[in-house]
Simulated scan of single mutants.
Amino acid sequence: MKYRHVVLIVILILIVDQTLKFWIKTHMFMQQEFIIFPNWFRIHFIENEGMAYGLKFGGDFGKILLTTFRLVAVVAGFVYIKKLIREKYSTGLLVCVSLILAGAAGNLIDSMFYGLIFNDSIGYEVAKFMPPGGGYGSFLHGRVVDMLYFPIYEGYLPSWIPFKGGDYFVFFRPVFNVADAAISIGVITILLFQKRFIGKHMAPQQGSTIKADQTA
Rank of each mutant, 00 (worst) to 15 (best):
H27I: 07
M130C: 14
V144M: 07
F69A: 14
Y3G: 01
I198S: 02
I85E: 00
I198K: 00
P132S: 02
R143E: 15
G77Y: 05
K211M: 13
P38H: 04
Q32C: 12
I190D: 01
P151Y: 03
F113C: 13
G142A: 14
I152G: 13
V7R: 01
T19E: 03
G199I: 06
G115D: 11
M147N: 08
V187K: 02
P174T: 11
H5F: 10
P174Y: 07
V95W: 05
L8G: 08
I64M: 12
W160K: 05
G166P: 03
F176V: 11
P162F: 07
I190T: 01
M112D: 11
G166Q: 00
G142W: 12
R196I: 15
L191W: 10
P151Q: 06
I161L: 10
F45R: 10
I81C: 04
H201F: 13
S121G: 13
L116V: 13
H44C: 05
V74S: 09
L192G: 08
N39M: 13
F118Y: 07
I85P: 00
G142R: 12
G134D: 08
F129G: 00
G199S: 06
K21G: 03
F193E: 02
I11R: 01
E47T: 15
K82C: 01
Y149T: 11
I185P: 08
P132I: 05
S121E: 12
I152T: 07
W23K: 11
N119E: 11
S138G: 14
I185C: 09
F171M: 11
Q214A: 05
F41N: 02
T189V: 07
I24G: 12
G165A: 02
F29W: 10
Y80R: 05
Y114N: 05
V72R: 09
R86Y: 04
I43E: 07
V74W: 09
R173A: 14
V72E: 01
F197W: 04
Y153Q: 07
I183S: 03
S184L: 15
I24A: 15
Y89D: 01
I85S: 00
